[in-house]
C-alpha cells in the first residue's frame, strides 16, 4: 500500500473541517475522492503533505509512518501535491517553473526534455512567463512541474477546475497516461462522472467525513451517487 490514512482530523484555528477520515491508495491505482465544495477534500490533501498539521490520526507512506514534517519534506517521500488553482510561479518562465519542480532532482536538466515531450505545448512556450499561459496550459505546467520531482504518488486537487470541456478531456486523458507510466494517483474532483470513468476506486466525502467508498464502476451505478453527484450537467460535459 502506497498511502494509508487512519482517522485523520485537521482544521483551521479552532474549526475542525476533517473529522476522522480513513482511506488508502495502492500502488498503481487511480483513486478518486469526490465531494461537493467545502467537503474538506483540499484540507485532507494538505494534511497529507504537511501544509496543514493533522490534529489527530496517522498517515503511512510506503508503509512508513510519516511524522508531521514540514511541507517541503513531502517531496523526498515521493509524494507531490498539485494544488487547487494550479499555483504555478506566474512571474517565472515555463522552464523555470519546471526547474523548480525538480529542485531536489539531480537529473532535472534531462527530465525537462521528458516532460516537454509529454506536453509539447509547453515546449512551444518554454521561455514565456507562466502567468501568460491559458488555463489549460497552466494546468499542464502544474502537472509537469509536479512530475519533475519524479513522484510515486501524485495528489491532484481539482485539475479540471475552470477548464473548457475539451481541455477537461485532455487533462483526464493525461492522468490515464500518467498511471500507465507508473504513477499512482489520488484524484480529487467535483467532476464525478469523468473521475469514476478513469478511477479504479473512489471515496465520496461530505462535510469532513467519508460517506461512501467502493469500486468506481459500482459507484457509477450507485443511486445515491447518481442523485447527488452525477447531475445532468456533468454528463453533458463528458459526453
Amino acid at each position: 500500500m502506497l498511502l494509508q490514512v487512519k482517522n485523520l482530523q485537521c482544521g483551521y484555528g479552532a474549526l475542525e473541517v476533517v473529522h476522522g477520515v480513513s482511506l488508502h491508495v495502492c500502488t498503481g491505482e487511480i483513486v478518486g475522492l469526490l465531494g461537493a465544495n467545502g467537503a474538506g477534500k483540499s484540507s485532507l490533501l494538505k494534511a497529507m503533505v504537511g501544509l496543514l498539521t493533522p490534529w489527530h490520526g496517522r498517515i503511512w507512506i510506503n508503509s512508513r509512518l510519516s511524522g508531521w514534517a514540514p511541507a517541503w519534506r513531502s517531496v523526498s517521500n515521493s509524494v507531490v501535491l498539485v494544488p487547487e488553482g494550479r499555483q504555478i510561479f506566474s512571474d517565472m518562465t515555463v522552464r523555470e517553473n519546471l526547474i523548480m519542480g525538480g529542485y531536489h532532482n539531480p537529473d532535472r536538466k534531462s527530465d525537462i526534455d521528458i516532460i516537454l515531450d509529454r506536453f509539447p505545448k509547453l515546449r512551444e512556450r518554454i521561455g514565456q512567463v507562466a502567468g501568460t499561459l491559458s488555463g489549460g496550459e497552466q494546468q499542464m505546467l502544474a502537472l509537469g512541474r509536479a512530475l519533475m520531482a519524479r513522484p510515486k504518488l501524485l495528489l491532484l486537487d481539482e485539475p479540471s477546475m475552470g477548464l473548457a470541456p475539451l481541455m477537461v478531456e485532455e487533462v483526464f486523458a493525461e492522468i490515464l497516461k500518467l498511471r500507465d507510466a507508473g504513477v499512482t494517483i489520488l484524484l480529487v474532483e467535483q467532476n464525478a462522472t469523468a473521475t469514476l470513468q478513469i478511477a479504479d476506486r473512489a471515496y465520496v466525502m461530505e462535510t469532513g467525513r467519508i460517506i461512501l467508498e467502493g469500486e468506481a464502476a459500482d459507484l457509477l451505478q450507485n443511486p445515491e451517487v447518481k442523485r447527488a453527484y452525477l447531475g445532468k450537467s456533468y454528463k453533458e460535459v463528458w459526453e
Partner: peptide, 17 residues
C-alpha cells in the same frame, strides 16, 4: 530561482521541496 519562487508563491515553493 528558488528564492524568486518563494516570493512568487510560497506554498507552491514548499510543495516543490
Amino acid at each position: 530561482r528558488a528564492m524568486r519562487a518563494c516570493s512568487s508563491n510560497p506554498e507552491a515553493a514548499m510543495l516543490a521541496g
